[in-house]
Structures are given as C-alpha cells and as structure tokens.
Design a binder for these strands. Structure first.
Lengths: 216, 216
DNA sequence: GCGAAAACGTGATAAAAATCTCGTTAGCGG
DNA sequence: CCGCTAACGAGATTTTTATCACGTTTTCGC
C-alpha cells in the first residue's frame, strides 16, 4: 500500500471513528460519501478521493460498504498491528496518558513508563510501576519497541530522542514543546496543545477588537 | 489588525514560544529569520512573510528585534487579554487540564469546572470545587465567559454546545471526539489526539510492510 | 566613503490541497 | 425493459500554501 499524505491519513482516521462508532444513528450496511461528508463537514469529493486512494471502490447509486471501508482503513493505518510503546516522563500529562486506555482499539499499548524523578521511583500509575531511566535501553532493546511517547521537559527531550534513536526506536510521539532532530527514517509527531489555544486566542482578540470599534 | 489564517497563527505561536523561551542559547537583542527557520525547520521566507503579515519589519543585515517580535505576536494573538474560561467535564482529561497551569502565560485562566457526575460532586481538583451543571448557565452569564473547554463524552457534546452558545459563549475548545455544529461566529477548535496516532500508526505500518517485502 | 556580504521584502513560481464538472454506473419505478 | 435519478470516478480548475529568485537596505572592513 502506498504511503499516504498526512492530511489524508488524518481524514481517514476521522472517517474510521465516525463509521466504527456504534453510536451512529440507524446504520445500514452501506454509507455514501455525502453522508460522511455531511457528518464531518468535508466535501463529498474529498471523501471519495480519500477512500479511492486506499483502494476502496464504491458502487453507483448505493455508496460504500461500511465494513469494507472500516477494514480497509484499519489495514492502511495499521490498526491491526499491535504497537507496543514506552512512555518517558511520568508527570501530569504522562500519567494522564498512562491512565487512558482508549487507544487499545487502534492497536496501541503503553507497555512501560520511565522517569528519572526520585519521588516517582517505584510508584505505580494505572497499575504500572514507573521504572528508572537506566532501565529504558535494556527494555526497549529486549522487547523491540518501535514507538516512544515522550512527555519530558523541553530541555531533556533532544538528548532523550538521540538515545531513543540509538536504541532503534522508529517513531516518537512528542508531547514536549520542542522540535526534535532525528534521522529522516524516524517519524516525529509533535502534539502541541498550545497551537490550539493560539487559534482560539486570536479569534477572541479579533472579536474584542471588533466590539471596541463598534463602541467608538 | 487583520484576521490571520489558521496556519499563520499556529506558526506565530511557535515563533513566540521559541523567542520567549528563556532557555534559548545566548540571545542577543535581535534574531534573524534564518535563525528562527533553522530552529523550527521552516523556510526563512515563510518566517519573514508571517512576521510581515502582522506588521513587523526587520532591518537588512541585522534581522528582527526580539522584543518587538514578541510584543507584536502577543498583540496579534491576544495574549494580553486575560481570557476567562470554564471547563465542562471533569474526567481524566478535564482534571489534567485543570491541574495544568501552563497557559496562564498566554492569558488563559480556567475559572470554574462543571460536571454532572454525582460522584464528583463537591470534590476538588487543583483547589477548585467541581460545580454541578445547573450552575453553569448562571456562572457563564454572570461572569461574561467567552470560552468553554469541553471534555465530555461525545454523546452529550452537541447538546452542551447548543446550550453554551445560548449562554453567549464565543469559542469552544473541543476535546470530545465529535464535530460540533455552531453558528458561524462561534469558533470551535477541535483537539483530536487520535489524529496524531493515525500518522504514527501509518508510518509504522509502512515500515513493517517494507520489512516484510525485504524478507521475501 | 565604498565594495562586499548578510539580511530583508516582495513578486513570481511551484507544489499541495480542495473543489468543480461531467461522464458512467447501478438500482428504482412504471 | 427503459428512462430517471442517485451516487461514484476522475480529469480540470481553483485556491491555498510554500518556495524561489532577485532587487533593496544595512552593516562591516578597508
């Protein structure tokens, strides 16, 4: 299967969530691009193109087969692969991620957590003991871990990333607010919640400005 | 100040974080577009265009004034405005957000949290009492709250959004995995952590496939 | 002062993403 | 069985985003 562009992958995830959501009202065996588009506020053509890009063909007048769509997306996005990951940095955010088990439906499991904070040593979060950093390398290499989730402070992230790459990690889910420099065959996905706030803040600022103009 | 495109806003936030980060090595009074670009892996021209779009002019051979850049970005993104917000849904994620105080530097404050779960009633998170849902409307209207952060289950989100709009909310930071339908003057920012995982999962799937091809 | 180099600003170009148009196909009603 | 309509597929077009190329400005060294 071909490599897909990031935006396509993200939309496919949205289609998948929509269709696999049991909550969807009265679901027949098929679904049309227009229905998906309507639910997600996307252009119907876009939906057809995306589905077409992973080899799903629809039927004129009928639409797409729900099961087939789900199956194909699972295959393309690799949800059936059982990804074992480690989490590094068991602070607030790290703990929250450890406690959240909602990703198992996509094949993701956090199998161990590491932190070098003495206070956390031996403490359990969500039933898992936080291991010391010295244990990271042996663990990753022994289990052939491919994904690391990092929620450490910005200062140590790059150093950590270098170490992880050395251990054979192939993807990093980066929750620390820094850009990481890695070899190009390693994927880094940055998760920046503050970018979301920027959009909101700008919107509210625009609004406030408009109100002030009105008054004057 | 003109309304900015979403991607520009997001990049401005990244410039701001980079420049306002005291951690930056030996910072002089000025910074060049090339330096910013290098640090964030962006094209220098893009940086200049973005800064230009909010009225910052640089000096040939010297670059941009750090302070001026920070000040202008703060102004454009409205970080000096003190946004008071409410959080609805005090589950795992909601609690984590309540506990995190890192947004105060951007002017965001979560001034109250609401949840209709009986078990949470009266409980405190991060020093704040979780209020019952009946208290939401009076609170929002009394304090003129403009932003709501919602971390409720998908099923109730739309209903909640409708109510919030009726109370005069102008922006919703949506952490629930549903598209919300709102009037067009209300901004909804969706925060979908699972989209990030989709990218990672697809990358690992590609990798696995490549390895299998190699073997055969 | 003056030329060279570094950095900006901006119009032109390229690449990517989204949307539109229209021909084709499959089921439906009579 | 036949025309009609709903839905798809794909090429063409438009819009957005990113990059390039080049003229201008400013400092530095001589």
């Amino acid at each position: 299967m071909a490599r897909l562009r990031r935006l396509v992958v993200e939309r496919l995830m949205r289609y998948y969530r929509l269709l696999s959501d049991s909550n969807t009202k009265r679901k027949g065996p098929t679904v049309t691009s227009a229905e998906i588009a309507e639910a997600l506020d996307i252009d119907p053509t876009q939906v057809r193109k995306d589905l077409g890009s992973i080899g799903i063909v629809g039927m004129g007048r009928v639409g797409f087969e729900r099961c087939e769509v789900c199956r194909s997306i699972r295959a393309s996005l690799g949800f059936d692969l059982e990804v074992e990951s480690v989490l590094v940095g068991a602070g607030r955010l790290g703990s929250a991620l450890l406690t959240y088990h909602g990703f198992s439906r996509y094949g993701l499991e956090i199998v161990a957590a590491f932190d070098n904070d003495r206070k956390l040593k031996g403490r359990k979060v969500a039933g898992r003991v936080i291991k010391p950093m010295q244990a990271l390398k042996p663990f990753v290499e022994k289990h052939g871990i491919q994904l690391a989730i990092i929620t450490t402070p910005a200062k140590v992230s790059q150093h950590l990333a270098d170490r992880l790459v050395g251990m054979g990690i192939k993807a990093i889910w980066n929750f620390s607010p820094t850009r990481l420099i890695v070899p190009e065959d390693v994927l880094v996905r940055d998760e920046h919640i503050s970018l979301g706030f920027a959009e909101i803040s700008h919107h509210l600022a625009q609004l406030t400005e408009a109100q002030q103009q009105e008054e004057s």
